[in-house]
C-alpha cells in the first residue's frame, strides 16, 4: 500500500465531520417524530423546505466563493442548521419566513464569516433571532397540540396554510394557532396569576407544557445518544441544565410567584434541544473542557434570566448568541494546565 502522507502518523481514526453531523441529525429523529404527532404534518413540510433551501444556498455560496462543492455540501453542517432552525420556527409559519431565516443563517451567519469552522455565531440561532426580531407576531403564534386543537390539520391543509396562508375550507393561521406554554406562563404571570394555578390549565402537562414535555424528553434522549457516541461532551449540557435547575430551584423556594417549577423550566420550550443540540455546536462554542462548563453555565443562566425578566417567552437563542461573543475570552482563560507546567 502506497503511503501518501508526508509526515506521520500513518494511522487514522474513523472520526469524520460528516459522520458527526449525520449522528446529530439521527439523534433529532425521535423528537421530530414527536413534534409531528403533536403539531401535525406542518413540521415535516417546514423541515423539508428548510433542508432544500439550506443545501441550495450552501451550494450556491460555495460556488460563488470558489470552494469545492462536494466535500463541503456533504459535510452535513448545512442540513443540521436547517433542521435546527425548522423545528424552532412555528409549524404553520408562512413559507417565506422559513426561506428567509435559512438563507440568512447560511449566507450571513456562516459563509460571510468564511464557511464551516469560521462562524463565530451559531448560524441556526442567528437565523432564528433575525426572524424573531423582524416578525415577532408570526414567530410567537404556535399551534396548540393536536389533542387540544379545535381543528386538527391534515397534510393538505397544513401545506395550503404554509404556502397560501389559508385553506380551501376557510381556515387561516389565526384561527388554528395559539400560545406556547412558556408564552402563556409569561403573560399570565404578568396578570398576577400564580404559577400553581396556571399549570392546572389544559395547556400544561406533568412536567412542562403538554406535548412540549415529550418533545423535550425525546431531545434529551437524543442528546444522551450523542453523549454515548462521543459526538458531544457532557460539559455543555450538564452545565446548562445544572445552572437552569439550580436557579429555578432557588426561585421556586424563595419566590414561587415569579415563574414555573424547575421541572417546568427543564422540560419546556427549547431547553433540551438547546442543551444538547444548539449550545453544543463546537464551531461557535468554547473549545476547552473547562471553557465548556463556563459556556454551558452562561447559556443556562441567561436563558433563565430572559425567560423571567426578558421580553420574550424563551431565551435559549439569545443566551447562545450572547455566550458566543464571550467564547474567545473564555477559551483564553480556561487553557488546561500543560504537562510539566508548575501548578498554580
Amino acid at each position: 500500500m502506497a503511503l501518501f502522507r508526508i509526515s506521520p502518523p500513518f494511522l487514522a481514526g474513523t472520526n469524520r465531520v460528516t459522520l458527526q453531523m449525520l449522528q446529530v441529525l439521527l439523534a433529532m429523529v425521535p423528537a421530530v417524530i414527536a413534534m409531528v404527532m403533536f403539531f401535525g404534518p406542518a413540521v415535516l413540510i417546514n423541515i423539508a423546505l428548510a433542508l432544500v433551501v439550506a443545501l441550495a444556498t450552501e451550494a450556491l455560496l460555495l460556488k460563488l466563493r470558489q470552494r469545492p462543492i462536494k466535500p463541503f455540501l456533504s459535510d452535513g453542517s448545512a442540513a443540521v442548521t436547517a433542521v435546527l432552525l425548522a423545528v424552532a420556527i412555528p409549524p404553520l409559519s408562512p413559507w417565506w419566513l422559513t426561506v428567509l431565516g435559512v438563507m440568512f443563517a447560511i449566507i450571513f451567519a456562516k459563509h460571510l464569516y468564511g464557511g464551516l469552522g469560521y462562524n463565530p455565531f451559531n448560524p441556526a440561532m442567528v437565523g432564528y433571532v433575525l426572524l424573531l426580531l423582524s416578525f415577532p407576531l408570526e414567530m410567537t403564534t404556535w399551534l396548540p397540540v393536536q389533542s387540544l386543537a379545535e381543528h386538527p390539520l391534515n397534510f393538505e391543509q397544513a401545506f395550503q396554510l404554509i404556502f397560501f396562508g389559508d385553506t380551501a375550507t376557510g381556515l387561516s393561521v389565526d384561527t388554528v394557532s395559539g400560545a406556547t406554554p412558556l408564552d402563556a406562563m409569561k403573560t399570565q404571570i404578568g396578570q398576577q396569576i400564580l404559577p400553581e394555578y396556571i399549570v392546572n390549565q389544559p395547556l400544561f402537562g406533568m412536567l412542562g407544557g403538554i406535548g412540549w414535555e415529550w418533545i423535550n424528553v425525546w431531545f434529551l434522549l437524543g442528546g444522551l445518544f450523542l453523549l454515548y457516541r462521543k459526538v458531544i461532551s457532557w460539559h455543555v449540557p450538564a452545565a446548562m441544565l445544572g445552572t437552569l435547575l439550580v436557579l429555578s430551584s432557588i426561585t421556586a423556594l424563595f419566590a414561587p410567584e415569579l415563574t414555573g417549577s424547575p421541572l417546568f423550566h427543564l422540560f419546556s420550550g427549547g431547553t433540551m434541544i438547546g442543551a444538547f443540540f444548539i449550545a453544543t455546536d463546537p464551531v461557535s462554542g468554547s473549545t476547552t473542557l473547562k471553557g465548556r462548563l463556563v459556556f454551558g453555565a452562561g447559556v443556562g443562566a441567561l436563558t433563565y434570566i430572559i425567560r423571567i425578566w426578558g421580553g420574550y417567552p424563551d431565551g435559549v437563542a439569545f443566551a447562545v448568541l450572547l455566550m458566543n461573543m464571550l467564547v474567545p475570552l473564555i477559551d483564553y482563560y480556561t487553557q488546561p494546565k500543560v504537562y510539566g507546567a508548575s501548578s498554580k
Binding site: 508526508i6 509526515s7 469545492p68 463541503f72 468564511g114 464551516l116 469552522g117
Partner: peptide, 15 residues
Amino acid sequence: RWPDPSHLQLERGGR
C-alpha cells in the same frame, strides 16, 4: 526544516 503543510495539501476549506 519540515515543509509547510498548507502548501503541500491544498486546503481550500478556509481562508
